[in-house]
Write a protein that binds this DNA or RNA. Sequence first.
DNA 1: AATTCGTGGAT
DNA 2: TATCCAAGAAT
Length: 308
Amino acid sequence: MLQQTTVAAVGAYFQKFTQTWPDFAALAAADDADVMAAWAGLGYYARARNVLKCARVVVAEYEGRLPQTEAALLKLPGIGPYTAAAIAAIAFGQRAVVVDANVERVVSRLFAISAPLPQSKPLIRAAMDSITPDTQSGDFAQAMMDLGAGICSVRAPSCPACPLAFACDAMRSGNPEAYPAKTPKAAKPQRTGNAYWIERDGQLWLVRRADKGLLAGMRALPDDQWTARLDGHATPPVRANWHKLPVQVSHVFTHFSLLLDIAVTAWPAGADDPGDGIWWPLKSLDKAGLPTLFRKAIEAVLNAGERV
DNA sequence: AATTCGTGGAT
DNA sequence: TATCCAAGAAT
């Protein structure tokens, strides 16, 4: 959960998740849809699929316990260089070089590494390796991460309070905020698309998104095939008496922004279902496990008042 | 190697 | 309001 996500954002999700599935065996036996729903709102949903896959591998191949070497951890789904090193060092007491975004910032300042990220990653890792102790490397890693989170902050670092100030080349340079340099990122394109509200007898028609791509595997409103690269084609998923609402939902993803229009229709009782999906009671939409974009869309529709 | 993956908080 | 950023990984 903590991959590219702040501790504050994770807290409540972690509590509920580990309470529902306290160990690998419990998680491995879970329904995929329940795990995805438990992740709804947290983002980067591939992580939910990966942790589920990981639990199943651990149960099937490792008798329900994580392997204890960094190399074996690295082979598991969703466990990359950072997570493998963190588990090996913190959970299993082995020496490992842990590099997260905090460490990248602290180390690039400590050594005044001027090459921009991400090209400087190997340099930073080598520098972290050179100062990682042979014992308690997990404690050292957590100290470095906390230093980055609380003292060596992105903007306005608290150098006078920093225990590493005596050795910090970036502070000595007078402008620690200049580190780490980063290659500029591309501008976000603005996309438009449509979502479709199909209502019948106090229920809303929800679909499941494709297994790959944006919001993969998540429950969702039907859409008009908008993507990060292309606007939606504005064609409803089924023939119906569509009614376009005078509301628009804006949402920002990592690499594009979306303006979403919403059309609503009342589905006749007795008619065939509008494709592949599920009727979900309006009263319990909060339990549907919808990503934030669709929670926003639903709120907009409900606030729009009369709709059918 | 460069892209593609969410979301909410801070500034 | 616009931008940056976070206990990164997979493809």
